[in-house]
Nucleic acid binder design. Structure first.
Length: 273
DNA sequence: CTGGTTAAC
DNA sequence: GTTAACCAG
């Protein structure tokens, strides 16, 4: 009978579709890997320094890569901070091929596409500098996630900001090991670029720490995202000022007795420029 | 070092 | 769309 036959036919088609779904899912699970530079084996965030000195996250979206950690702020389409330890041994001149900027596979909300920056007039400015992570291909490539960049004025990035990054490398070379936290000041009313509305910070900050937990030495910088030929010293500010602007608590895991005075003052002794 | 632009595949 | 070579501050 015609009707029975058609039901049978539908059943067969349904079975085939189901099989395709099952096989497809199996293939996806077993062979699909998202674009990533991550390598499970590498990673050096077991160190006490990194764990005890991480800032607070205003978003809760903390992502740990093998050689730096960040807190992503989705509405601004960039990290609110990026933190990493810079050791003397990290400083190398290894020649590396610049990879493509890709979405950070570990940011659940998806980090901004690099095309937001195209034609915007702004640089894709690294937060964790590529120049600090040249010691391995993995470390270098990791800095090319779009979660690690922020729109920066060309002459700011290649100028005063680059000078600060070079100074930080000098400090690492001189003092052995330092801890760095950096980001743009994310606030209301910022200019936005691209289809995803990536915010353009007006200010960038960088906090550098060295020494033992008990007597930490910290210096903080707040620099407008414009070209400047002023000496870096003139941009030093108390950490408190950056905390008020960003809402981030930079040494929340350390005892208040240690951090209170540390954060209220600018102490440049112990930091040779 | 910090990057962008261009042209060829 | 990707990549390598070249260019600029």
């Amino acid at each position: 009978m015609v009707r029975a036959k058609s039901i049978k036919g539908n059943k067969a088609i349904f079975t085939v579709l189901l099989l395709i779904c099952v096989i497809g899912f199996w293939l996806f699970e077993n062979f699909y890997t998202p674009a990533t530079y991550s390598v499970a084996a590498e990673g050096d965030f077991k160190s006490e320094m990194s764990l005890t000195m991480l800032p607070s996250s205003t978003t809760g979206d903390i992502v740990a890569h093998n050689h730096y950690i960040l807190s992503y702020n989705e509405p601004y389409e960039q990290a609110e901070w990026v933190a990493y330890e810079l050791k003397k041994e990290h400083l190398t001149n290894d020649d590396r091929k610049r990879p493509y900027f890709i979405e950070d596979p570990k940011v659940k909300t998806k980090s901004a596409d690099w095309r937001n920056y195209r034609g915007s007039g702004y640089d894709r400015g690294h937060l964790c500098p590529a120049g600090d992570r040249r010691f391995s291909e993995q470390a270098y490539n990791e800095t090319f996630y779009t979660s690690n960049i922020s729109p920066q004025d060309r002459d700011f990035n290649a100028g005063v900001w680059n000078r600060l990054e070079m100074q930080v490398r000098q400090w690492a070379k001189r003092y052995g090991s330092i801890f760095v936290v950096t980001g743009g000041v994310l606030e209301d009313g910022l200019k936005e670029i691209g289809e995803e509305d990536v915010d353009v910070p007006n200010y960038y900050y960088k906090i550098v720490a060295k020494g033992e937990k008990s007597h930490l030495e910290v210096i903080a910088f707040l620099i407008p995202g414009r070209p400047s030929s002023k000496p870096l010293e003139q941009f030093a500010v108390p950490i408190d000022q950056i905390e008020k602007l960003t809402g981030i608590d930079f040494f929340e895991k350390l005892p208040i007795e240690i951090t209170a005075e540390l954060e209220q003052n600018v102490n440049m002794e112990g930091w040779r420029f």
